[in-house]
Nucleic acid binder design. Structure first.
Lengths: 348, 348
DNA sequence: TATTAGCACTCGCCCACTCTGAGTGCTAAA
DNA sequence: TTTAGCACTCAGAGTGGGCGAGTGCTAATA
C-alpha cells in the first residue's frame, strides 16, 4: 500500500481539482489540467490502482473519480501543502473587531464569524459549561435599600450579574462588609461546589445576616446554563454545497446545527488534545451519522493552560482543508491570547 | 366586494384546510371535508367568484385553489378565530426556564426558542442597539492594584463589564471615591452622549485622577455593538416547508436569517406601535423581496413604557396565524413582565 | 517493461412523448 | 338557485431513445 511518488502526485492533483470543482475528475481533464507528461490512458491505469487501494471511488461507471474518506485522509496527513499566513486583507478582519469591549459570549460569536470568513465555510465555536468554574471575585452592589446586584467573576471569563431582592433593607456599609465576607469564604470555590453545609456554616458565622446570606448564595450558586454553548456562523454555506443538493440532507444538517448539545459533543470529541493544533475528522470518522458526508476541523483554545473549548469549521468532505486548518489554528491562537489577556488573572 | 356570509365560510374553510395540508384545495375535497350542504359545482362557482375578487388563485388550470395574500389578509383580519390561552403543558415550557438567572441576551435567546415551540415555526427576537441606553449605575471594582473592572448598568437591562488597565496604581478607597464621582456625573446620561466636552469637564474637576478618568470613560463610552441584535430559533422549520422545496428559496432564506441587520429592519418596521399587540405582515406586504412568499407576525415588548424590541415569528404565507399571534403576544407580555421585573428600576 | 492509441462498452443525463388523474368551466336540466 | 354532466386543461409520473463522458481492455510502440 506504499504509493509511488507519481501516484501521490496524481492523487494530490485529483483531490485539489475535485475540491475546487465538485465534479468527478476524469483521466482526460486530469491530463489536460496538470502537466504530468502522461497520457489519459496511463492516468487511467494509475487511477484504477488508486481505486483498488480504496483512495478513490467512482460515483458510477461512466463518471470520473472522486476521493474517498481514506483518500482525503492521506491528502490531509501527507500530501497537502499547508498554507502559510493569511494575506493582510484577511487578517484585517481580525482587527476590525475590538474584542476588548465585549463579553465572553460576544467574543466567541465574533470568533465564529471571522473563522467562517477565513475558512470560507461554516464555523462553530464551543464554550464549555461554566459549571465547574471557580469564583474569582464577588461584589454586592446596592441598587436600592431593598435590592442589590451581585457581580460574580469566574476564572473562566464569565461574569454573572444577578439581581437579589433583600429580605431586609441594608445600607452600603453593610453590603461592603458582606462583600468582604463573601470574598473571604468563596474565593476559588467552584460555583457548583457551594454545598448546603458550607452555606450553613457561613450563615452561622454571620448569623445576624443569615437570611440575606441565604438569598445571596442562592443566586450565586444558581446554575449557569447547564449545557455547553455553541456558536455557529455561516450556516448557509452548507446549503450552497452541491453535495447537499437534496433537501433531506440540508434539513438534517440544519436541524443538527440547532441541536447545541449534539454539536458540542462532536466538537469536544473531535478536538485534539494539543491546544491550538488542528485536528481533522473526515466523513465516517465522525461519530454521528448525520455528518458522515461532512468533515470537521477543530482546534482547542485555552485560558491559563487549561483547554477551554474549540474553534471549528465544518463542510462537505470536499473541504478546503489547508485553508480550514490555518483558519482554525489562527483563530484558536487569537482566542487564547485574547481570553488570557482579558480573563487570565495573574493569580489564576 | 362585500362577501356573502357563505363566501366567507367557504374562504375560511379553504384557507384553514390549505394551512393544514399545503395542498391546493379543490371543490370536491372542500365539499367532502366541510359540511356546507352544497355540491362541488356550487362551490366551484363561489370559488370562481372569490378568485375574481383576488382572494384565491390557481397555481395552474387543473389544480385546486390556494389563498392569495389578500385572501390571507381577510382571514387574519376578519375570519379567523383567535386562539385563547395555550394549554397548560405548553405554558409549562415557560416555567422551565428560570429567566431570573440569566442576562438580557440569554433571556432573549430563550424567548426565541420558546416562541418557536409555541408558534411551531421559526421565531425571531430583536433587541435594539443599546446606543441610546442611559447609565443607571456604575461601579469600579479593584481586580488588582493595576486593574479594575468597571460594571455599568443601563436602563435597558444591559450590564457591561469592562476591564481597565489603570495608568497608575490605585487603592480600594480611591476607587470608591471614583465610583461616587462617576455616578454623580453620569447617572441618567446616555452612553453615547458622553461628549469630549463632558469628559474634559470631569477630568478638570478631578484633575489629580485625569488620566485614570480618561481611561475609565473611554471604556464606558466604548460603543456597544452598533447593530441591533437578533436572535433566531428553529430556522430549520423553514427548510421543512413544502413551499420552500426549491434549493434557491431555502438558500436565500437561510442567508437572510444570517444577515442580522436586514432581519432587524424587517422586525422594527413590522412591529405594531402598540406594545404586546401582534401585527401581521403577509407576503408582499413585507418590504423585502426575499420574504415575498413569507409572513411575519411581530409584537413589541417594552421596559418601562418604552418599546424595546419585538418578538416575532416567520414562515410561509401559509402560516398558522391564530397560533402565531397568540404565541407572539404571550411571549411579548412575558418578556415585558420579566424585563420590567429584572431591569425596570423604580427610579427609571 | 512502461506507455500509449484505439475501441467497444457502460451508464447517467436530457429530451420528447404519452398517459393519467385531478380539477375546472360551461351548459342545460331540476 | 342549485346541480349533474361533460369536455377540456394541464402538471406529474413514467417511458424510451440519443448523447456524451469516461472507463477498461487489448494490441501496438518506444
Amino acid at each position: 500500500m506504499l504509493l509511488s511518488s507519481r501516484q501521490q502526485a496524481i492523487l494530490k492533483a485529483l483531490i485539489e481539482d475535485y475540491i475546487l470543482t465538485a465534479e468527478p475528475v476524469g483521466s482526460r481533464v486530469l491530463a489536460k489540467k496538470f502537466d504530468f507528461g502522461l497520457s489519459p490512458a496511463t492516468l487511467r491505469n494509475e487511477m484504477a490502482d488508486l481505486e483498488d487501494e480504496g483512495l478513490l471511488r467512482q460515483p458510477h461507471t461512466s463518471a470520473g473519480r472522486i476521493p474517498s474518506d481514506a483518500g482525503y485522509r492521506i491528502f490531509v496527513d501527507v500530501l497537502m501543502e499547508r498554507v502559510g499566513d493569511f494575506p493582510k486583507e484577511d487578517l484585517g478582519i481580525l482587527e476590525r473587531f475590538t474584542f476588548d469591549e465585549n463579553d465572553l459570549y460576544e467574543i466567541l460569536q465574533h470568533t465564529a464569524k471571522i473563522t467562517a470568513v477565513l475558512a470560507q465555510c461554516t464555523a462553530i465555536v464551543r464554550a464549555p459549561q461554566q459549571q465547574s468554574a471557580r469564583l474569582k471575585f464577588v461584589q454586592v452592589l446596592p441598587l436600592s435599600a431593598q435590592e442589590a446586584l451581585v457581580v460574580v467573576v469566574t476564572d473562566r471569563g464569565g461574569t454573572l450579574n444577578r439581581r437579589v431582592v433583600l429580605p431586609t433593607p441594608m445600607g452600603e456599609g453593610e453590603m461592603a462588609t458582606l462583600t468582604n465576607f463573601l470574598n473571604f469564604h468563596l474565593r476559588n470555590q467552584p460555583l457548583n461546589g457551594l454545598t448546603a453545609q458550607l452555606v450553613g456554616a457561613m450563615c452561622e458565622e454571620l448569623s445576624e445576616y443569615a437570611s440575606v446570606l441565604e438569598a445571596l448564595l442562592a443566586k450565586i450558586m444558581a446554575p449557569a446554563p447547564t449545557q455547553d454553548r455553541v456558536f455557529v456562523a455561516n450556516a448557509s454555506f452548507l446549503a450552497e454545497q452541491p453535495e447537499f443538493g437534496e433537501l433531506n440532507k440540508i434539513r438534517s444538517l440544519l436541524s443538527l446545527l440547532e441541536r447545541e448539545s449534539a454539536l458540542a459533543n462532536v466538537m469536544s470529541q473531535a478536538g485534539s488534545t494539543e491546544t491550538e493544533i488542528a485536528r481533522v475528522l473526515i466523513g465516517r470518522e465522525i461519530p454521528l451519522a448525520d455528518l458522515h458526508e461532512c468533515s470537521v476541523v477543530t482546534a482547542p483554545y485555552s485560558i491559563g493552560h487549561q483547554v477551554f473549548g474549540e474553534v471549528g469549521v465544518m463542510g462537505p468532505t470536499r473541504l478546503g482543508y489547508p485553508r480550514a486548518i490555518a483558519a482554525v489554528e489562527t483563530m484558536a491562537q487569537h482566542l487564547t491570547r485574547t481570553l488570557s489577556r482579558l480573563f487570565g488573572y495573574p493569580g489564576a
